[in-house]
Write a protein that binds this DNA or RNA. Sequence first.
DNA 1: AATGTACGCAACCGCTCGAAA
DNA 2: TTTTCGAGCGGTTGCGTACAT
Length: 265
Amino acid sequence: MNTLCTSLGVRKGSWTEEEDFLLKKCIHKYGEGKWHLVPARAGLNRCRKSCRLRWLNYLRPHIKRGDFEPDEVDLILRLHKLLGNRWALIAGRLPGRTANDVKNYWNTHFQKKLNTVAPPPPPYRQKINNKCGEISKNEIIRPQPRNFSRAKKNISHWCNNKSMITNTLDKDDELCKEIVVNICDKTTGRETTLSSIDDDGVKWWTSLLENCNEIEEEEAITNYEKTPTTLLHKGYNGEGNSMEQGQNDDWDEFSVDIDLWNLLN
DNA sequence: AATGTACGCAACCGCTCGAAA
DNA sequence: TTTTCGAGCGGTTGCGTACAT
């Protein structure tokens, strides 16, 4: 047993079955979130980060273990090409897989191969200078925090009243294309055109993907808090696959995932 | 059988971001 | 507007195990 402790007396190292049990019990009772309260609530002598990590990477229901399927590997490769080391985002597209799993898999199976070619700097930290240059290993589109600000909490309402009627993909340049989306307000009948490239040269749709995940997770977590056992059986794992389980129909018509898929193909 | 090495996974650390005060 | 704090993320480390010698 690992008995390493910090100066504050917080336990570190491998988790025991008893600790796992206490953490699970706590999450089932109070739901995910408020991690700073979890150690006290669960009666664990662990820091909140440790608790969060243990839950996300190991204890959460429906976490898929074992070898990655060939199609999962393919998706990882494609998404990594597009997003860089954004493991959380990549994992969000792989139901049941955690960011840590994906990262470990990548480091184990691909990192060494890449290093033999050229050691790339952390691509997601680099600014994209050219709007329409070819995307290379070092020119990764970094999703920017462009959320729907105040409207975020009412996003479902927004989605209910607006439908995306077209999205045009430029066939010439795969990754630097401008995506034009016409949004029609069902209530007024007014159409608004959004471009994928804004003033900063940032593709808003990439951050939109993040927003989708956040909202899915927020809603799922809220629901989870209300009826944990029901959702446990329904299969929510908080990893962005809640839609697969038939939840959150508001997003079914939202075609951003399709766009991403198109880009990857 | 014993020892050394490589590999994979779980966990920790430090940083950034965003929300709240 | 600034400061503080919690949450989340990616990089890195360390341990256990499998395999080779």
